[in-house]
Design a protein around this nucleic acid. Structure first.
Lengths: 340, 340
DNA sequence: TATTTTAGCTAAATCGTTTTAGTTACCAAA
DNA sequence: TTTGGTAACTAAAACGATTTAGCTAAAATA
């Protein structure tokens, strides 16, 4: 079942494929092709269900209208939403998206970038894993269109779309302080990732500005966000001993941690917000129907995705465009998990 | 910054590109290429950071090692998990995945299929929207490798990987009956979608087999799963009047409905499971940390994704393979939302 | 010595487009 | 009669790989 090509249409009509190509690319007028013939070509194309071969097009033109997306994990609703928005905004301009989940693993992202290069994608949107700055650097050095999201590398001058993590964490922590919490814990991951570091810094600064001590025992930076054991250990340390609870509030720096954390806290029989107040980054469904709906810092995922695509497409169109760092506003949603 | 091609390596070493191609495809032995030259070619390829152009390869060989995935919405964790698993399993065999969210819209899926055809994907995994059977039929007729997931069309003989929806709904409903619920409502969507219809049928059969009346007033089939208003209206009808509640239990046929439903039920001040018992399909995070963790029919998403890819790759390899319908086991997880 | 075999390599076609640089035929103007 | 212009179209190269068919020189065999 061979697909019909330009040539098939051309021979069928007894014209050259050049002519067919011109017509189907809407350049009939420009190249003064007889209107009757234009019509015939178009009709025949439809009749034979002609679909241009994008490989051939891409090979010839050097453009594939495809963008490569590397995120941590498409199954994580945070990235799912982001991916969705990116797909949608890209489609508006006729671009396809190849999705890759890196699992925050620089080895994987390296391979994925190579694969995407081989696929001749026109540009990249990447949420880079820790220790992958060399990969990003290589792309930037070759002036390959690229936008980073969610995190960036301060030492690399690249496009970036994200939020002010410091400020958001500061605000969330201040909210807990305002409600009278004194021993506020912070649970985070990926210690060397800039966005996570900024969140911890924001948290600490809020404590300092409120004349509260920064107790490193209350700051738990885990290595893997999917490792339940590590989280449980951290929470046990904080809340294990009934009469000697170390903390009366927690700031979760990702919703993945928050969801698992709340599940475990509940299993300990502790009540939110009475025993423990909770604030978290991101706003998954779970937080809305939770035992005690969770107060959150919500990121503007739609806008992040949309903007990232726009910046990328602009860079693809104008290779000389200089890099942009776009910081979008977060939304602080107060629910019941902090009491009042 | 032109990328290096086979030709670049060839001219640099003063050999033909045929030779270079042979060597880099590991056919040095087969074509009796001098070992020293093999070595040189490989070294030079690495040195020049040669990346094969997949467009050219695909154009010549007719294979792209790419599969097209069409699902309803990648932001929906149900499909997110599925997509993740598919991506992962495909990567194991060196396949890329192009993701498309159809929003259950047949117009969109039609366009997406066309786009994927143009991209010369080797095969399709599709969760087809309602009224898209002609699109699927066209693919099947041309013997294009294809696997349907989550739903299928009874009139089309295609590959399919899914679950026994009738049985699962029957089991869930029976569980509610066993716990003494008499007026069990069913909330679903997409009335003409086979998987949803099977669920309603399973629900009804369970009632019949338990000698309970099937009350059509308790069966709410919505048109859109994302339309909160429609759902709220249905729930108000069921639970609106305090002293005259129509139902004492609900079966939600998707987790999207369930999450929004539970949120609204809670806002009415009704208690789960005391006032209303709840069972749902699928098992999102939200159900685990919910006010009253939800009893669910969990689909084996990992296995569905993995199997779908395997069936597809097999069909790609063996175009004469006959179609398979694979039904995987669900898991019934009992939590607190039904009382005891 | 003549013929065949083998090792080691290459030329060129091909996939389906796009695009440059023409060509042809006709008519008008000089 | 020559020149120039224009309308309408086409040949062929190019993109970067794969793959078929075949070439040359040396070694093995008859």
């Amino acid at each position: 079942m061979k697909r019909t090509s330009l040539n098939d249409i051309a021979t069928k009509l007894g014209v050259s494929k050049t002519l067919v190509s011109f017509v189907l690319n809407g350049k009939g007028k420009e190249f003064r092709i007889n209107e009757d013939i234009c019509k015939k070509v178009q009709d025949t194309a439809k009749e034979m269900n002609y679909q241009p071969n994008r490989l051939a097009q891409g090979l010839r033109t050097g453009k594939t209208n495809t963008i490569g997306l590397i995120i941590a994990d498409i199954a994580n609703p945070f990235f799912g939403f982001l991916g969705r928005e990116i797909e949608q905004e890209a489609a508006k301009s006729g671009y396809r998206v190849i999705f890759c989940s890196s699992d925050e693993n620089p080895e994987k992202s390296k391979q994925q970038i190579a694969m995407l290069q081989q696929s001749q994608v026109d540009g990249y949107i990447i949420s880079p894993p820790m220790y992958s700055s060399d990969q990003v650097q290589a792309l930037v050095k070759n002036n390959i269109p690229l936008v980073l999201i969610d995190r960036f590398f301060p030492e690399i001058d690249s496009n970036y779309v994200g939020i002010n993590n410091f400020e958001a964490a500061y605000k969330a922590t201040s909210h807990l302080i305002r409600l009278g919490r004194k021993r506020i814990a912070c649970i985070s991951v990926n210690k060397d990732m800039i966005n996570m570091r900024e969140r911890t810094e924001g948290y600490k600064q809020a404590l300092i500005d409120a004349d509260l001590p920064v107790d490193e025992n209350l700051v738990k930076i885990l290595t893997f966000s999917h490792d339940n054991k590590e989280l449980v250990k951290a929470l046990k340390d904080l809340f294990g001993k009934k009469e000697n609870r170390k903390a009366d509030a927690i700031l979760f720096s990702t919703s993945k941690l928050g969801i698992m954390g709340i599940e475990f806290i509940s299993s300990l029989g502790l009540k939110i917000p009475d025993d423990i107040a909770v604030v978290s980054f991101d706003d998954p469904d779970a937080y809305k129907i939770c035992v005690s709906p969770v107060t959150v810092v919500n990121q503007p995922l739609k806008e992040i995705g949309k903007t990232a695509v726009q910046v990328l497409l602009n860079k693809i169109k104008h290779p000389d465009a200089k890099s942009q760092q776009i910081i979008l506003k977060t939304e602080f949603i107060i629910r019941k998990s902090c009491g009042s």
